[in-house]
Simulated scan of single mutants.
Amino acid sequence: MVSVGALRAHLVGVGIAGPVATTRERSLRSYRLFAAGDPRQTLGLDPGRTWTPSDVLGLMADQCGVSPDPRHISGQDVIDPDLTLAGLDAFAARLRQAARHREPVLLGTGHPQRLLGFYAGLAAALSAAGCPVLTPSHGRRVDMPTQFGLRPHNLRYVGGVAVLRDAPGEGARGAPGVHTHSPLPVRVALAGAATRGGPLPSLVVGDHGWVCGAGQLGIEAMGLADSDDPAVFVAQAEGRVSVVVPLDDAVRSDYYRPLTRYVLNRACLSQ
């Protein structure tokens, strides 16, 4: 069992929370782009109101722990580890509810190199508890727009977790998946589930476009988000996402293992 104190020390010690690798410049740029409606930052979310950069900064200070001072424009960003812990507790409570009612769950990540193990641990525990862990549209082609035109990918499931992989001949063999912020993968997955007559997920768990894309379509979603991912926090503020855990989403994959153990223990899903 991972204690709260030990986990808090771990979060700060490995840079998941506290001073993180994300720079202040990068975060502020993301807030400006989100406010301008740039799809690279809206992640499939259509905000319900106008958000100015100042509004976004205020929200991120409250929900993530970054500095609220607009004059602070350089250096490392900061994520409040106590907000991370609170988010993990809420995350675990929702998973416990899903397991109790054996709800169908869809898991997906745009950060497979870092977060696949975290989500796969949840998928295994939910499946063992009797939850249908959905894998709709497995192998379906997803054409992703780039500055050079459409690039073909395939939707795949690894350990019950959806990831986007380069189409054959397009990328490195053996890679766990590609990094993406796009909502297209979750749209393809949900469309596949609907076409086959379901079941549709009661809950989507993930990050980036997986969370915002599902929430925009009216499906409950929760997940992880970095200090430069304002769309996920805005989606929560507008009631489109139920739980957001603020953390650095790009540290070593093994650093997230204590988080998996903590969440599963709190959710009464430890195996």
Rank of each mutant, 00 (worst) to 15 (best):
residue 31 Y to I: 00
residue 114 R to M: 11
residue 9 A to V: 12
residue 114 R to H: 07
residue 184 L to R: 02
residue 54 S to T: 01
residue 87 G to L: 01
residue 194 A to M: 05
residue 130 G to D: 01
residue 90 A to G: 11
residue 93 A to Q: 14
residue 229 D to T: 08
residue 6 A to K: 12
residue 241 V to Q: 03
residue 207 D to H: 12
residue 94 R to A: 07
residue 6 A to Q: 14
residue 78 V to M: 08
residue 253 S to P: 15
residue 100 R to D: 15
residue 81 P to G: 15
residue 52 T to H: 06
residue 247 L to S: 14
residue 107 L to H: 14
residue 3 S to W: 11
residue 220 E to A: 15
residue 218 G to L: 14
residue 20 V to A: 11
residue 270 S to F: 10
residue 167 A to D: 08
residue 155 L to Q: 13
residue 57 L to Q: 00
residue 128 A to G: 10
residue 92 A to T: 05
residue 104 P to V: 15
residue 254 D to L: 13
residue 34 F to E: 00
residue 110 G to S: 04
residue 191 A to L: 02
residue 143 D to T: 06
residue 85 L to N: 14
residue 245 V to T: 13
residue 213 G to A: 06
residue 137 S to T: 02
residue 265 N to E: 12
residue 134 L to Y: 03
residue 75 G to R: 10
residue 100 R to W: 12
residue 103 E to M: 15
residue 175 A to Y: 09
residue 85 L to G: 06
residue 5 G to N: 13
residue 118 F to S: 09
residue 132 P to Y: 01
residue 66 V to G: 00
residue 268 C to K: 09
residue 123 A to T: 08
residue 8 R to D: 00
residue 97 Q to C: 09
residue 40 R to D: 15
residue 55 D to F: 00
residue 47 P to T: 11
residue 176 P to E: 07
residue 14 V to T: 15
